[in-house]
Computed example of a mutant assay.
Amino acid sequence: MSDVLLETRGLTREFGAIRAVDDVSFQLKRGELLALIGPNGAGKSTCFNMLMGQLKPTRGRVLLAGEDITGLKPRAIWRKGVGRTFQITATYQSMTVIENVQVALMSHHGEIFRVLPYATRRHRDEALALLETVGMADQAERHCAVLAYGDLKRMELAIALAHDPMLLLMDEPTAGMAPRERIALMQLTADIVAEQGVSVLFTEHDMDVVFAHSHRIMVLNRGALIAEGTAAEIRANPLVQEVYLGGGTVFGAEEAADA
């Protein structure tokens, strides 16, 4: 079995005369935590939307474990073992934490369209185990409407894991979080990668988070990949420095967020 889980070949997306993603090719290995960074408007979210099926590429291919999934609907890609978290959390605010995870588990088990008068009893132990994984078991019975934003992000991660994905796409997972919460969430993600072998591709503006936790980093600018390598290699790359800071050093979360 190949150690490459996700591969793109010449991935391109055009909106009229605008080329939002331009001939992007990369590989993500099994059990790898890979960061995709770049200035605002670089094409990161467009790239994610093609990987997950929300957008069809103008050209190019997306392969998952060697299978061509280009152009498949998001639900079909989800069924093949790809999960996603979003910049803005989307939860059922009137439900408790555990009920949100139970709904995700019911979907995973093909029960979401059934009328279940005892739905709150379904997969409760499994839901609690997922909440334990993300450090939220002690808040299982709290309603989502009263949760702090960092806790909502952790719950969203539990929901994404409910499908037992082999690949997790995380679009700016720490957006809106305090610096300490950002580090904690990405450390949790890194632990899940190490313990469960899940592969993660994430976008992020906080360079402290990126450099501290990613195994490898790719840099996107104006739709094209301009650099790829370890944290040390990306820090020292003159082109990356120019893109982010006009010739300065790629260093620190505040500077990166302003780029």
Results as ranks from 00 to 15, higher is better:
R121S: 08
Y149S: 01
L5R: 05
G223C: 07
R84L: 12
A104Y: 00
A257N: 13
Q196P: 14
V134E: 08
I69N: 03
V134C: 06
Q102Y: 09
H109F: 14
P39T: 10
D191A: 09
D258L: 13
G135P: 04
L116N: 12
C47Q: 05
N40Q: 10
N100Q: 02
I98E: 07
Q187N: 15
T91W: 06
P179E: 03
V250M: 15
V240Q: 07
G16R: 12
R142A: 03
V193Q: 15
S199E: 15
P57W: 05
I37E: 03
S45T: 14
R222W: 07
V219L: 12
A158R: 04
Y118M: 11
T96Y: 00
M218S: 11
T133S: 12
L51P: 06
A42W: 07
T58A: 08
L169I: 00
R61G: 04
F251I: 02
G246I: 01
V210P: 07
V82C: 14
E172F: 00
E204R: 06
K80R: 15
V243S: 00
H213F: 12
K80N: 05
F211I: 10
E111I: 01
R61Q: 00
A227P: 10
A104H: 01
V198L: 15
R9L: 10
A257T: 11
I88Y: 10
K73I: 09
A65G: 02
E67A: 13
M50R: 05
I69M: 07
G110V: 06
L11W: 04
P57L: 04
V101Y: 05
L168M: 13
E233Y: 15
D171G: 03
T203M: 03
G248R: 13
F202N: 06
H109Q: 10
L128Q: 09
F26T: 06
G150E: 03
A20P: 00
T249E: 15
L245S: 12
D208R: 10
D3K: 04
A137N: 00
N221I: 04
A140F: 08
F26D: 03
A259W: 07
G41M: 05
A184G: 06
L64E: 03
A184K: 04
N221Q: 11
R216V: 11
A232Q: 15
T249C: 13
V134A: 00
H213T: 12
H215V: 12
M1G: 02
L63Y: 03
I18V: 13
C47A: 14
A231L: 14
G247K: 08
A257M: 13
L5M: 14
Y149K: 11
G38E: 00
G10S: 03
Y118N: 14
M136W: 02
L201I: 02
R142L: 05
S45L: 07
D171C: 01
G81I: 09
Q54W: 11
L116H: 15
T96D: 02
G41P: 06
A35D: 14
P57Q: 08
M136L: 14
L245R: 09
R216Y: 10
G83E: 02
G66P: 02
I98Y: 10
A127K: 05
R182V: 03
E233I: 14
V193M: 15
G223N: 03
R30E: 05
Y118P: 04
M136G: 07
N237S: 10
Q187I: 12
